[in-house]
Nucleic acid binder design. Structure first.
Lengths: 149, 149
DNA sequence: TCTGAAATTGAAAATCATTTTCAATTATAC
DNA sequence: GTATAATTGAAAATGATTTTCAATTTCAGA
């Protein structure tokens, strides 16, 4: 956490941007949750501690946090962009339940390897990738079976 | 193409929806392009032949086309939803260039297999998945190297 | 073929997430 | 400390998509 704050500050300095009270508060709130927050959710969290911080500033700061490599966008099928922690968190894929919306994070080195190879075969230099599997989680399948409907 | 139109009509009938002039025209325009069209692009295409068809109708009809299993959404990293043909088109993944925005469609049965297995391991029943690899295409890499910048 | 209920249409307004504008404030290099 | 360039909050603007609503169209059944 201390480390992330340093990374953030360094990233700002490098870009000639200022280290402000608001930016640090917003980063802190982001680091405090392990959820995949939407911007609005984060704004609500920030607001509890610092009601004077505006919506636009949260949006702007989230871009900076992404720019610093501390967050990455995830797409859970709805249209709003959510962020998950990137720094110190391994890349992973998502299993997203179409029924309840919950998701699992998974990682398979074999798949990663094949993805890399697949790209190379097309003379394509991969930078990052996104793999989301949509389907039904165990709980929702059981619900379906028992309560059928 | 004739086949797709039948699929569409059947899907409408099943849902107690009506087969209208507008819907058929919009479907036709969609089928006529192999591009990954955004709704706006499709509207422009439709408009050339049928200026009386409204924007909202194009949006509404695209949802129906998706519902009939004739189109699927693709996410090329920008925020607008684009559609590609689904019917009679094999599933595939995308290699998306961060520089020029162009993309390749690729398919790797080994990866598909592993994805299936990965989901099963979590007692997750996969329905569909999305895999997008972002990076730099051959052309943009060359441009970078030669013109450097 | 005609009729009527239900579905659909186009245009405009509404919505929702996100971005921009702008005057006032603040961080920081000197 | 001071100047200046970056940042802020609030409100307005944006852009994609959805909804509203009165007028029109489809189509099942007479």
């Amino acid at each position: 956490m201390q480390k992330e704050i340093e990374v953030f500050k360094d990233s700002l300095k490098k870009a000639n941007q200022k280290i402000t009270h608001q930016r640090l508060k917003i980063l802190q709130s982001f680091l405090n949750t392990e959820k995949h927050v939407s911007c609005d959710e984060l704004y609500q969290m920030v607001r509890r501690q610092n009601p004077e911080i505006g919506y636009a500033t949260v949006y702007r700061t989230l871009k900076l946090i992404q720019g610093a490599g501390l967050a990455r966008e995830v797409d859970l099928g709805d249209k709003i962009s959510r962020l998950e922690h990137e720094y110190g968190h391994k890349h992973h894929d998502h299993l997203i339940c179409l029924e309840c919306g919950k998701f699992l994070e998974v990682f398979d080195p074999e798949i990663e390897e094949l993805q890399e190879r697949l790209a190379k075969k097309q003379n394509f230099t991969p930078v990052r990738h996104k793999m989301d599997i949509f389907g039904y989680c165990q709980k929702c399948q059981e619900k379906e079976r028992d309560g059928h409907k």
